[in-house]
Design a protein around this nucleic acid. Structure first.
Lengths: 228, 228
DNA sequence: TGCACTTCTGGTCAACCTGAACCTAATGTC
DNA sequence: GACATTAGGTTCAGGTTGACCAGAAGTGCA
């Protein structure tokens, strides 16, 4: 009854890199090892208290930078978790505003530095602190839904890319193979792609045309909140 | 820099009632007149500080009950707003976790009592306090999106209803007319409806069969968060 | 009683979308 | 130059969608 309520911001960060065993693209998530009770020693989402003069999204981006040295290509609010049971300690309850972010693989490599930070494959996580397992599960659900009707897959890729590369992102996120011809038809008719005159050569096969995304289209459509 | 951060929970409450002029179904929203600065006299979303021992959703439901005497048929988190600029006063910043709720019209009538509470048609709102106009706009956007792929329209109706009544809800939310025959076909093939043996008589036309929703299907699919 | 009127309900049709299969094009390798 | 491999394009069947039509079954009125 007399408990205080603390406000924290955490972030689920996704990167796309080959799985260690299968070499196929998989989603990776960086976690931070807790160095104090409760849940000391368990892995948790990067996050921290909200600075008094910054916005929620800014706090997520700052914390992401501090813990993983990364800047997100895409950042969106996921959910605010505030059950009275998820307390840090007996006399303090924490409400967490959680964001989810997408970063490029090159960036993810550069971010390996942090000593208490380690990257995990998103579907092979260890036991996490607090309710963070549920949070990651929900973030994965949102990502898998959103990749189908937005162009957020672009956040995993560079400026230009082949349709096979873009398809690889979708396949890794959705965890199923997609028909190349049908995928091409869908992407071409979506109007989100712009064909360039460049080609990706070097493979032992016909070169693939490079595309880029139409920059005038937002990564994801969030209605009236698009600007935030 | 030295400002404190307060945590509040607000709710955008939707009911469906005939428009005062056109007599057509429209979305209504209850607002509360502010009795203190800042924005004294302006209308604002019902809400209040989070009690220390309750969950976020519970706080929204309690506040909804206190200000409008209503219990929601549907309640879902909308977004957490926390820009550093939306402060109540110079030295205190407020982070608002906003929910949106759907209530039945009968309930909405009973809720007229509150003296500083008034219902407005959702697209004809006056100037609102803080960033509440944006919040309502976003809630409307979410509602209009969600009504197309979930069965939340049921929250506006009673236990049983005719297809015309259900179509009326969709038309009012989406603000466009729908073909009765095609709407029927879609609803029937969705598997969400169960036909009853009762009919609605009394109109000067052929009686309409009454349907009810399949209770085993959730109002809205929220993935891993369905239980919360 | 019979007719007008209204909405319910079931159906058709063309356009579009989707998944699946197949074919040709263009490169590197041997 | 033959071959393996992936890019890129076409076709076909099945399902879905919007537009429209017509009979069914009530109420109200002559």
């Amino acid at each position: 009854m007399s408990s205080r309520t603390a406000l924290a911001v955490s972030t689920v960060i996704f990167a796309l890199r080959p799985h260690r065993r299968t070499r196929r693209l998989a989603l990776w998530v960086p976690l931070v090892r807790r160095i104090r009770d409760p849940h000391r020693g368990l892995w948790a989402l990067p996050g921290g208290p909200l600075a008094s003069d910054e916005g929620l999204a800014a706090s997520a981006a700052r914390n992401l930078l501090e813990t993983t040295r990364l800047t997100p290509q895409y950042l969106e609010q996921l959910y605010a978790f505030g059950g009275p049971d998820r307390s840090d300690s007996a006399d303090e309850r924490t409400v967490s505003v959680v964001y989810w972010a997408l970063v490029r693989p090159e960036e993810a490599d550069a971010g390996e530095a942090g000593v208490n930070v380690r990257w995990f494959v998103a579907d092979e996580l260890p036991e996490l602190a607090f309710d963070h397992s549920l949070i990651v599960e929900y973030a994965l659900w949102r990502l898998r839904n959103k990749v189908e009707y937005s162009r957020i897959a672009a956040a995993f890729l560079g400026e230009t890319f082949t349709l096979a590369e873009l398809r690889g992102v979708h396949e890794a996120v959705l965890q199923r193979t997609l028909d190349p011809a049908n995928f091409r038809r869908q992407m071409e008719s979506s109007g989100r792609l712009v064909a360039t005159e460049a080609y990706r050569t070097g493979g032992r096969h016909r070169p693939a045309r490079l595309y880029r995304h139409d920059q005038s289209i937002h990564l994801a459509e969030n209605g009236p909140l698009t600007g935030l």
